[in-house]
Design a protein around this nucleic acid. Structure first.
Lengths: 315, 315
DNA sequence: TATAATAGTGACAACTATTGTCACAAATAC
DNA sequence: GTATTTGTGACAATAGTTGTCACTATTATA
């Protein structure tokens, strides 16, 4: 094997293994330890952050793991990647902020001049708009980490009734039109709840020793399972015009209930928790003639009440 | 210079220049032409798609331009890039669809096992939700291309009054909550208009010879300039509760008019085209008690009319 | 404290790869 | 026909790589 090939493979192996000895590599590549030592020195000079310790149980280590892919991206691919990262800049809060921007600038830096020109030209011609929010989301990393490692997190949460301390076990986090949400098991309510991350006043790993539950079947790809197992359900049925369908498509909660007809119109049908009535009443009022609520009666009542209130206000 | 270094630099140069001769490179690198020929053959074997023509004005060319960056991404950066690209999968239509997914799979393929594991773990724990829409956007590439190259595009556009043919000069395209929009100069209305891309029934480069205007000062980063210079303006003033502010933050059109107070409440204030009254009336009705419209009177009148209509419908 | 495991360096000879030169073939634009 | 260009083959000179050996130094552990 040629030296350059060996170096490439070394990079890969070194990154995969994280910890290794010179002898190991020597036998793996069928070369002398001296050669491997020289190779490692060269890798080091090329920027791979190697660190070594002598003695038994010593060996080499890679410090901040790097992947060094000599990947051949086509120009089109580079552009696509660039704009994907670029789209993230609209999020003022991310669980990996600094990384995405540094990756972006690296990418930009290494691109050849004409690709760069092309990107500059495109920058002001295409955008993925995400509403810029004033709300603050300082605990995204903690929540994400808690979701990945299935830990119990202690949060202070601000709801209509004031601030309360809760133990939660996050399922994940997601952003929707510029706001971050965290579906989680709530040890207080003993059920799944959706938390708005900007209402979380503090968050930290729980130290009281509450045992995490086995919620591995719950994840973001499994929306059905994230519906709280509440008692008080009722049946929703709403007729929608073509415009109404499009407006409902934009709402996260509606996706499982929305049905479309060939002509573009459609309807909403499905279970709904009774506590959502105030929200839905206001929402369907906002759809105006594009929605016709048929049931439940409680929802219709609430809508009538609200309409009367607004008539009074603007009348 | 060592051979491997030279090869790396060769890749870069070759990608930047697109067209070159062996002699040029030989003098640039201070080696013989024979060496360069050997190098180019090696690059070719490594996958760089080189093509050559003999004779005067002949030379080498790179076929599909590739950038081959030996970029050292840290693990964190790789993860960030991955999720940025991953977020794009929610868009069923993109002006560069295939590229982003192929880039993503390449990235995934070249990642070392443990980074891959980490990504797999995160995949179901974090998401950027963008509403999945039924609407179709088949002409994004044409519009984007038109915007970049400042060409005149002939479209058939479906508005309330039916389908009409128009000549437009796109400023750019942007996606907002799953729908694509195209601000463009409309040669029919002789002004800037915002087109919804799912209402475009056909699009193609114009062949009638209409001269493009010099609109280089217009781009997506310059929202103020994209407001149509209409005659019929009126002044909007709306008082907002804290909730109302948050709901307005989510609307693309409101960003320039939204003002916030320290306590979280705020107000909307600014010019608005009169033709937007129907839309705004419905929108503010949807905000309910979180918005109090003060002016213009025409807007208040329309709201009252709509409220009465809804009272009748549900009453 | 001795021992084994580990990294690290220097020198040198054997081996391998790279390079330049030269000769020549083939295509092509003008 | 001539100049320009890619492309190939052979060969010697040069440069780089590798293995071996003889060292040094550090450190965990028995």
């Amino acid at each position: 094997m040629s030296k350059s090939k060996r170096l490439m493979e070394l990079m890969m192996i070194v990154n995969r293994k994280k910890k290794f000895t010179v002898k190991e590599l020597a036998t793996e590549f069928n070369v002398s330890t001296r050669t491997i030592l020289r190779d490692l020195q060269e890798l080091s000079e090329l920027g791979v952050p190697l660190y070594s310790e002598v003695g038994p149980h010593g060996g080499y280590q890679v410090l901040n793991e790097r992947i060094l892919p000599p990947i051949a991206f086509t120009e089109e691919e580079a552009v696509a990647i660039f704009f994907a990262c670029h789209a993230l800049r609209h999020y003022a809060y991310l669980p990996f902020e600094t990384e995405s921007s540094s990756a972006l600038s690296k990418f930009y830096f290494y691109m050849s001049g004409d690709v760069r020109d092309r990107i500059d030209e495109m920058k002001n011609r295409i955008d993925f708009v995400i509403p810029s929010r004033q709300a603050k989301f300082p605990y995204l990393s903690i929540l994400l980490d808690g979701a990945i490692r299935q830990q119990v997190i202690r949060i202070e949460y601000e709801s209509r009734d004031g601030v309360s301390a809760r133990l939660i076990q996050p399922v994940g986090i997601f952003a929707s039109s510029g706001l971050w949400y965290c579906p989680a098991y709530c040890f207080l309510r003993e059920d799944i709840r959706l938390f708005r991350c900007d209402r979380i006043r503090s968050a930290a790993e729980d130290t009281s020793g509450t045992q995490p539950l086995d919620l591995r079947h719950l994840h973001l790809g499994n929306r059905e399972a994230l519906i709280p197992a509440e008692q008080e359900f009722t049946n929703l049925y709403v007729e929608l015009s073509e415009e109404g369908v499009q407006k409902c498509e934009g709402e996260y909660w509606s996706s499982t209930k929305l049905h479309r007809r060939e002509d573009g119109t459609g309807w909403l049908e499905g279970h709904m928790p009774k506590r959502d009535i105030p929200f839905l009443a206001q929402f369907f009022i906002g759809l105006g003639v594009d929605a016709t609520v048929k049931s439940p009666p409680e929802l219709l009542d609430d809508m009538k009440r609200r309409l009367a209130e607004m008539m009074a206000r603007y009348g």
